[in-house]
Write a protein that binds this DNA or RNA. Sequence first.
DNA 1: TCAAAGCAAGTGTGATCACATATCAAAAAT
DNA 2: ATTTTTGATATGTGATCACACTTGCTTTGA
Lengths: 242, 242
Amino acid sequence: MQKAAAERNNEVFAAQLAPVGRETVQDRVYSELRRALIGGLFEPSQVLTIRGLADALVTSTMPVREALGRLITEKALEALPNRSVRVPPITLARIDDLLRARILIEGEAISLAASRMGPRQIATVEGLLREWDEIRALKHKKDVDREVTLNQSFHFEIYRACGSAVLIPMIESLWLQSGPCIRVAIYAFSEAGEVDTAHYHRSIVAALATQDAQAAREALVADISRPFAFLRDKLQSTARTE
Amino acid sequence: MQKAAAERNNEVFAAQLAPVGRETVQDRVYSELRRALIGGLFEPSQVLTIRGLADALVTSTMPVREALGRLITEKALEALPNRSVRVPPITLARIDDLLRARILIEGEAISLAASRMGPRQIATVEGLLREWDEIRALKHKKDVDREVTLNQSFHFEIYRACGSAVLIPMIESLWLQSGPCIRVAIYAFSEAGEVDTAHYHRSIVAALATQDAQAAREALVADISRPFAFLRDKLQSTARTE
DNA sequence: TCAAAGCAAGTGTGATCACATATCAAAAAT
DNA sequence: ATTTTTGATATGTGATCACACTTGCTTTGA
């Protein structure tokens, strides 16, 4: 029986075929909504409807409602008593709460990663840094989508190295929750004259290269604290404008 | 318009009617599965089927499949490539991973709670401690379900006081993931002659009463580490027996 | 003129059906 | 006797429908 299976596998391997995968529609909807949320494509407090999203994504309601349910349990979306769902509004208490949790968990993750990243992984994140420099040199602005994606790749490439199957999903949940806030902060940055984001990332990489866990943690804290602090100020000054 | 609403409210309040609530079937299924998972009613590696659960819970498949999807995103259940779902198996790496995350996050939560719990909340958890003593004095054993519930109430009564809407759902997810493991540990305890669990809880309460965050954190770490260490030893000695 | 009732469109929830795939045991072939 | 094939059963996924509830606007009545 095992011999037969091995033979069949050889047929496949000989032909150099890659596994085709079986992603469901629900998975695609879920991924798409995640991407939109982390990228801040939805406004805080925006209400989402099942049929509206199903139309926009060109599917039926079924995959959408299940994806929404999953996002609600991750606190990426919020179920109102009306049974409608919206992206959670930004409050001062919430951004402080989110930042504290991110410092705690992402700090621990990068601290673990510091002693586990080989030259191979260091090189990968350095590559991402260079890519960042390139797109910044070329275009002057407005490629914030690309920047958000690159930032995400940079951080998660590091977190993945921490080797914890428990912490990583939690960090993903935290990013999902801070996504809508962060986008607001990014816009605030670009209209306030941007500070050099890459600088923070470079000091993170420097700390990782020398396996200095404490320095890496501190550099990371500085990196993620900045947009939150910015957003906090902005929120306090505008007071109530909705 | 507001006046009219107020009048209607007065009618209701006069009659002393409580809001009736609108819990959906899906919510009930979800809660029930959560309870079962945290209580360790499912075996690690056990496969769950939608139709099987729907029959057991006397509903249709629809609420069950959505509840399962939510539990999968919380890592309380695991989606196999077959598209079937099972409760995650126990491995040494996983219990170490879970324990580390729980120490990190629950430690932070209790540390925050230490400075926020008033005499009111302290009294509540002391009440839970007394309740524990009572059921231990009466029955000699085998009320492990009651004990599990009481343990859960004790911890979450404290965590709720930390005031973080971000950390608490994460802790719930961690309990969901460690539930199946813990039950194994509890059985191991009862056959190995039980150590006094209440002792650890009492030192937690003592630390909280004096608002000593560091002591509370240490006592908590000792409390939650114990079953994991026990389970770890058991797993290593039995080596492979499945 | 304004509040209350009524009506209509929109929305979430749960049930049921159709279909593709997985699983497993029995039968057939080597 | 072992392996392959085959067929029956079980299971997850997505579509569609019926129903209840919400919401906002229009109409009615004072």
